[in-house]
Design a protein around this nucleic acid. Structure first.
Lengths: 218, 218
DNA sequence: GTCTATATTTAGATAGAC
DNA sequence: GTCTATCTAAATATAGAC
């Protein structure tokens, strides 16, 4: 990842405009798109913003993915894939002795979810896709993605519908708190702090680490 | 409410283009805007879509509110207000005998929240505002709105942070399920049905009543 | 109070050079 | 593999008539 920091408050952007293998460039664009779409949503983001974040020209972004919609769908598919993979890895972990109850599994999956904040675009892009449910194409994928997660938690994790509901609910709250950037006003507002401490529990440090100037881009 | 149904699958739109008091017209536009913004988000919605939903011309919408952003902010402020008022009314209700625990209050507030689905725009517009947290103006209002709800639940309902977290989490899940239009594929997918039954509990009928062709607009 | 016409800007996409 | 130039289609906003 050859990124460079720029003027204060600005985000990571590519500077080098060298010739790079298409596959790699593709990844760079997807990474940039994930961040931009995650912040601004499908309609709110522009292909030019993605291009700038990736350090290339706008036409090249379109050229590479055909359409903005394609790009977004790919971003969302990747995000979903990453989430599913993360969960499956946790499910595959050998369970700590005497720790075979659903509760501890929920905790571990929850922790895995929070850790995904490292790549902010993942959770937010997914959330943006969900909120774009009205769109015929994106909405269909969003629905299917959500249900895929549900089925995994039920069929692979073995959770009851109630457990899944609570788990998903916490996830959606987490996404929402990220979206409204609560971590940013952590110190300014006592209610914000109280809610964050409660919602993020032991993971507050992870969340705060991932926030701040690090993602105050564009 | 002088609406007319149109071709199958299309939404309610005003037809009459009569002269109407500005104050009333204002309300009509806000109602239309609430639906359109709720479905498509701030960036995804156009003032023209709002105008069509309200049965007037696009320039008139802008004329009335100055800017699209203003209109959205007003929609969100109204939605927040409606939510707060609904909750406060429930808090003011005489508690059923032997029913003075937090649990039952949570249930009643939850039921009140679900009932807001009657006016789909309310919950979805708020959610759209939350997801637009990156925007300097809208984001600030969204944050403040979210915290306002938190404080009410804490200071007026007397809930613990944990209770509030769970309550808010369920609310965010509810919003998300609405956004991805899960009620629409209720019958098509067994996982969707299972999740809905579990998430909406006794309120499934209310939710289903409010969905379907009724809000398949634009 | 409401519309039509239109100016202006932005953004997605295409063409074609290097 | 990547860019510059540019076409075209929206969409917000303004002007001014009725």
């Amino acid at each position: 990842m050859s990124r460079v920091s720029e003027e204060s408050g600005t985000a990571a952007k590519e500077t080098t405009t060298e010739r790079i293998p298409a596959a790699l460039r593709r990844e760079q664009i997807l990474a940039a798109a994930s961040r931009v779409f995650g912040e601004r949503g499908y309609s709110g983001a522009t292909t030019d913003q993605v291009a700038q974040a990736a350090g290339i020209s706008q036409p090249y972004v379109v050229r590479m993915f055909g359409t903005k919609e394609n790009l977004f769908l790919e971003v969302v598919a990747r995000a979903l894939d990453k989430l599913m993979t993360t969960f499956r890895e946790i499910l595959a972990e050998p369970r700590p002795a005497g720790d075979d109850d659903a509760d501890s599994l929920v905790s571990r999956l929850g922790a895995g979810y929070v850790d995904l904040i490292d790549d902010r675009g993942i959770l937010l892009s997914l959330m943006q896709a969900f909120i774009t449910g009205h769109d015929p194409v994106i909405g269909a994928k969003a629905r299917e993605g959500f249900l895929q997660i549900y089925r995994m938690l039920r069929d692979e994790a073995g959770f009851t519908p109630e457990t899944i509901r609570d788990f998903l609910a916490n996830g959606m709250l987490f996404n929402t708190l990220l979206a409204i950037r609560l971590p940013d006003i952590f110190e300014d507002d006592e209610a914000a702090e109280e809610l964050m401490r409660c919602a993020f529990r032991g993971k507050l440090d992870v969340v705060l680490d991932a926030s701040g100037a690090k993602w105050t881009h564009s």
